[in-house]
Computed example of a mutant assay.
Amino acid sequence: MSAFLPGAAVEIKEVKEIISYRYKDAKGNPIPFRFKPISTERIEELEKECTTYKKLKGQGRVRELDTQRFAARMAIETTVFPNFKSKQFREEYKTQDPVEVAKKVLCVGGEYTRWIEKANDLNGFGDDETLEEMAKNS
């Protein structure tokens, strides 16, 4: 039981990952993104924010989750760097929506998909080995 008490779990620190090879530092090296998992409570909040309800004839009120928006919002919250929520980014890309900023920065489809997949993995929605490796490396 003690392994499940507060403070017993291994905290997963920030993880670096190359998402795009188009953005490079002064030495010409790709700039890694930094990620950190978010809490279950925050994931639930994001899910609620991305859920709508529709009345369908014969079915009553039906819940509809915008899965693409949910995945992107979770990736926004999981990404420590670059901070797509920053005022500077939103002003430069002329949008208040951090998801739209991310889509513009990661305009190559594979980059955007890689970013979403990394956030999913870090939050336990991907390969269990990813979380296991992160815990070992923390």
Rank of each mutant, 00 (worst) to 15 (best):
S2G: 02
A3N: 12
F4Q: 13
F4R: 14
F4G: 04
F4D: 05
L5F: 11
L5I: 12
L5V: 11
P6K: 05
P6N: 09
P6Q: 08
P6V: 04
P6F: 05
P6A: 05
G7I: 12
G7M: 11
G7H: 08
A9R: 14
A9S: 13
A9T: 12
A9K: 11
V10H: 01
V10S: 05
E11D: 13
E11M: 09
I12G: 03
I12P: 02
I12S: 02
I12M: 03
I12Y: 00
I12W: 04
K13D: 01
E14W: 04
E14L: 04
E14V: 04
V15W: 10
V15M: 05
K16A: 15
K16D: 06
K16S: 14
E17Q: 13
E17Y: 02
E17L: 13
I18Y: 02
I18L: 05
I18P: 01
I18H: 03
I19R: 05
I19W: 03
I19F: 04
I19L: 08
S20P: 01
Y21A: 09
Y21K: 11
R22W: 06
R22Y: 08
R22C: 07
R22K: 15
Y23G: 08
Y23M: 15
K24G: 03
K24R: 15
K24Y: 02
D25I: 07
D25M: 03
D25S: 04
D25F: 02
D25A: 10
A26M: 07
A26E: 05
N29H: 04
N29A: 09
N29E: 10
N29Y: 03
P30S: 14
P30Y: 10
I31W: 00
I31T: 00
I31E: 01
I31N: 00
P32S: 06
P32I: 06
P32C: 05
P32F: 06
P32H: 09
F33E: 01
F33I: 06
F33L: 02
R34Q: 15
R34D: 09
F35C: 10
K36I: 10
K36S: 10
K36W: 13
K36Y: 12
P37E: 11
P37D: 07
P37I: 14
P37G: 08
I38K: 06
I38A: 11
I38R: 06
I38P: 05
S39V: 14
S39E: 07
T40G: 03
T40I: 10
E41K: 14
E41G: 15
E41R: 14
E41V: 15
E41C: 09
